[in-house]
Design a protein around this nucleic acid. Structure first.
Lengths: 229, 229
DNA sequence: AGCTTTCCTTGACTTAAGTCAAAAAGGGGG
DNA sequence: CCCCCTTTTTGACTTAAGTCAAGGAAAGCT
């Protein structure tokens, strides 16, 4: 892996490390690849370390007793996965699976803890990462509890537009079925929500590419709660 | 405040600090008291630091456009509140309000960050705290999405029993209305869930004191998803 | 290209849980 | 101990969103 270090330096989470520190991480970490559909870890597995996505996409999710899936988060390049069980408990609190062919860097637990203990800036970076994730969870709880499915979808599309820096065109990086699971619903309901929003001229859907026709309308939909004004 | 240090030493989060470090925290922190119903901070307020609950109860919550409330967490003695915006962003992501007369320790942001940067063990403690909270959020998302109200209630009662170390008797520390908001429902629905569980001889409710009559039945209810087996 | 599999959509039906409204408990303070 | 105020419960009704089932559209393989 000749350019693992240069890859590392592009990961925001490791961004302000010195050359030496990159070397340390490189020494203690292992590159692993996962095919689409391959499990990275199961809920309840003992955690031996964390992963950093170098390439690809990984979903973290829970199952209900009946087999319905709720995606907690989809992680892309540069994001750490499974770090929670490095710092508390030792079992993974959810399942993780690659949803595209992915390259992940595996960093063993003890070595990572040592690294953090020795380098306060890394600790602060990690605190920032966890804090950001807590914010995202707070939003997810808020949306599940206080917004209806169309509202959650509108909010997600606006979030994507922001994320992708596009004004009026976004492209989904996951299938609609997976999006349904991320938004806490089922494909049928999501499909109907898309259809209704298209009817109301809020959006135009072409497969995974969506044109936002009426930002204001979308914002209203996203703001409104379970029983729209 | 003569015994602030001794209070601090009983806070798990600060538990393995040295005497000197307690002194440092004491120097940089301020004691504040809040009456029941008083706001600690609003969502969107600029964060100037974090709070640690010494005494009382604080709820952290979001509002929907229509005014429905979703409680994200209820914090009791020993728990830090508002730490997320210390490490990422600078605005509070949710509202906080005392739901009982409370004593909170306010720790200014910059001083706390310095403290953490200087003392890796504190950083690791903080990482553990945030990780634990992430786990709790993951559970909350899972429950909101995958369990019905009776299931969420049963899971909560079992969690409380565990928390309180009692086998078959738990006492609610918040009102049923607040519990409804914590479980992502409304008082009417929660009340009906309690009534049905009592009818089915799973529990016996006397105001805020609840006797668990059938642990196995409760566990089944808590495990089952939105459409019981 | 053609075949197969997976993904997405649509229709008809069911139901958990919300709303509104009003009555019944419960809990301090005077 | 009684009154006021908040909390909780119950009843009747409505609806968002789930289920089941079937058809269509894409996507991947050889």
């Amino acid at each position: 892996m000749k350019n693992k270090v240069s890859t590392l330096s592009r990961i925001p989470f490791f961004s302000d490390l010195t050359q030496d520190q990159f070397g340390e991480i490189e020494k203690i970490s292992v590159l692993r690849t996962f095919d689409k559909g391959e499990v990275v870890f199961f809920e309840g597995d003992d955690s031996t370390g964390l992963f950093v996505v170098l390439d690809g996409l990984v979903k973290v999710f829970k199952f209900s007793a009946e087999g319905k899936e709720q995606i907690l988060h989809v992680f892309g390049p540069g994001e750490p996965v499974g770090e929670v069980s490095v710092f508390s408990g030792q079992q993974f609190p959810a399942n993780a699976e690659a949803i595209a062919k992915s390259k992940l860097l595996f960093v063993p637990r003890a070595a990572f803890v040592d690294l953090i203990a020795a380098h306060p800036p890394i600790a602060l970076n990690m605190l920032a990462v966890l804090s950001k994730r807590l914010r995202q969870f707070a939003v997810q709880v808020e949306h599940l509890s206080l917004k209806d499915v169309p509202g959650r979808l509108a909010a997600y599309l606006l979030y994507l537009a922001d994320e992708q820096g596009k004004e009026d065109r976004v492209s989904l990086n996951i299938s609609k079925g997976q999006l349904a699971s991320l938004l806490g619903t089922v494909p049928e309901t999501l499909s109907r929500a898309f259809a209704r929003m298209a009817n109301n001229k809020l959006i135009e859907v072409k497969a995974r590419s969506i044109r936002l026709l009426d930002r204001v309308g979308l914002e209203e939909l996203a703001e409104s709660g379970k029983h729209g004004e």
